[in-house]
Design a protein around this nucleic acid. Structure first.
Lengths: 137, 137
DNA sequence: CTCGTGCTTCGACATACTTCTATCTTCACA
DNA sequence: TGTGAAGATAGAAGTATGTCGAAGCACGAG
């Protein structure tokens, strides 16, 4: 996972509040691109919803009609994006999600309470108002 | 935009609550894939945060060092994904975001309050519990 | 009607992505 | 130490994607 990713994401304003910088857009788009594949989304969901919060690769491979290397490739994409982490225990490798990253993404997608923005520590802090969109009925 | 997309998205459980079906993953991945490009993410953010909640293509084109056709292509991708809508007024075409879709995506990413899930009408309803992940400290 | 502007569509090209088979690494166990 | 299983890596093939220039469409102004 890229160093400092979570901290960086926690500082992002919601998409709709102010325009993303090129750098912010680059970081975020890498995460969304990683989720932009149905197999990877299902892998993410399977891992996240699995009992114990983790799943071994063998659990995941049997769900799909795909070869082992293909599943391994998709897991690598998710891992390098910072969405999951893997740990080897004996013969098996177990993956679990990085919940803060998903939460940060959710915070970027939806505007927080008025005049607040997540600060990466789980709560919200005041923020100066930019151009607020006027959405008609 | 695909018909019934918003209603469908509103019925999705959070990623971490239960495994996505192949069909659900297909729908969602199309949205994430559309956001998986830095230019498109910035376009989305520029449109959403623009004064009046809408932006014309000329406003957007001048921000990037890209040709008009390229911007138009990215806007088409966002439009066909259901993330934005476009409307022609006189010479100009104005785009605005589809806020319900972004909100639905955010709801998929983050677990709602315990035993609840968005019903697509802006509030939450009870839901049966699946395998709840145990996240260690 | 004609012209210019804003935007989209078309066709082409280079790059990236998804998937596979074959091979390699790591580990448990005899 | 040797063997087998779980995963990862490497390389290749087919497809999709991002970008451009050229051309087309819609609209307002003369």
């Amino acid at each position: 996972m890229p160093p400092g990713l979570v901290e960086q994401l926690g500082c992002y304003s919601p998409l709709v509040r102010e325009p993303l910088s090129g750098e912010q857009a680059g970081e975020l788009s890498r995460l969304f691109k990683a989720m932009g594949d149905p197999v990877r989304l299902r892998l993410l969901s399977l891992i996240a919803s699995h009992a114990g919060g983790e799943a071994c690769v063998c659990d995941l491979t049997e769900v799909f009609d795909l070869s082992g290397p293909t599943i391994s490739h998709h897991l690598k994409v998710l891992r390098e994006a910072g969405l999951i982490t893997g740990e080897r225990r004996a013969t098996w490798v177990y993956y679990r999600i990085q919940p803060e990253v998903l939460e940060a993404l959710a915070a970027v997608l939806v505007p927080a309470a008025p005049d607040t923005v997540p600060n990466g520590l789980g709560d919200v802090v005041p923020q100066t108002r930019h151009e607020l969109p006027v959405v008609e009925a």
